[in-house]
Amino acid sequence: MLGTVRSDNWRRAFRVELRAEAIGLAFRGWPVLPGTYPVAGHWAGRDGSEDSTGPVPIHADWQDRVGTKAEQVATWWTGQPYSLLLATGLGYDAIEVGDDLGRRAARVLRSVGLPVPILATPEHRWFFLTRTGSGLTAELAANPDIALRGTGDWIPLPPSPFQHGVVHWRVKPEVCGWQIPTTETIQDALLDALREPTTRPLVATGD
């Protein structure tokens, strides 16, 4: 019984945190959406079976709900600790890469004094937020470790829960003054990171 109470209290507190983050981002004009959340090894919160490996929008008509005002967004998190999703392709895109490439690209951006919003999942995937723009260059598009998340897609935002941890910021938007870079800026950094000598040792930076 005590364990159940603690679990309920934790879930309630976590829902409050997710709701507060969703409201704050909605006020800033970010197209946020509620997504499924992990429970006992599966993703809950949406009618019907889901075999996804990550959160998906709980509303089938989620594309029609994009741009909902913050006051309405607040009501979406009054019942369950839904994941916090960002609809991409509508002013915001994201370039998804693996953990190693993400670290190297972040180092390239730091070297030129250009912090950008970066988030990471417990599944070792990094997302570089960009303004909606052009597609990936041919070199990046051919790399299986890189994906552009754009129109008709979404990404999880912190502090969305996963089966083994939560999504977290590697570089918070506040650090960048809430400025979102162009996709070309991030793609240039990724290309530079890919062309780094493979024998160069990686230095732990704590990012």
Rank of each mutant, 00 (worst) to 15 (best):
N143V: 00
R195P: 06
E123Q: 10
W30S: 13
L119A: 05
T205E: 14
D51R: 08
I180F: 00
T137P: 00
W154R: 01
G133N: 03
G29V: 10
G89I: 07
V5C: 09
R149H: 03
V112W: 07
P34Y: 14
G135A: 07
G41M: 13
E196Q: 11
G24Q: 15
S7F: 15
L86P: 05
T130S: 02
P173G: 02
V66N: 06
T132F: 00
P201R: 15
G54F: 02
G89T: 12
I180H: 00
D47W: 03
T132D: 04
E21V: 09
G35P: 04
L114Q: 05
D153M: 07
I23D: 08
I180R: 01
D207V: 12
P173D: 04
L84K: 06
W30A: 13
T4K: 15
T78V: 08
D64L: 07
L25P: 04
W43K: 07
G3N: 15
A204D: 12
Q163D: 08
E139K: 08
A189Y: 00
E139G: 01
H59T: 04
A138R: 12
R149E: 01
A60K: 04
R11I: 11
A204N: 11
P158N: 03
Y37D: 09
E96W: 09
W76P: 00
P57Y: 05
P161M: 06
P38V: 06
D93N: 13
T183I: 07
A74N: 12
D93Y: 08
H42K: 15
G177E: 06
E50F: 02
P159F: 10
S49H: 09
Q179I: 09
D188Q: 13
W10A: 14
L119S: 07
S160Q: 00
V56A: 05
H59M: 05
V16C: 13
A147N: 03
P201V: 09
R19L: 05
E184L: 08
A60N: 09
D207W: 09
A20P: 02
S49D: 15
G67L: 05
K172H: 09
F27G: 12
T68K: 04
I180N: 01
L114K: 05
A44M: 13
R170Y: 01
R65H: 09
T205H: 13
H59K: 05
F128E: 00
A94R: 11
T151S: 10
I155A: 01
R6I: 15
Q179D: 11
G206N: 11
A147I: 00
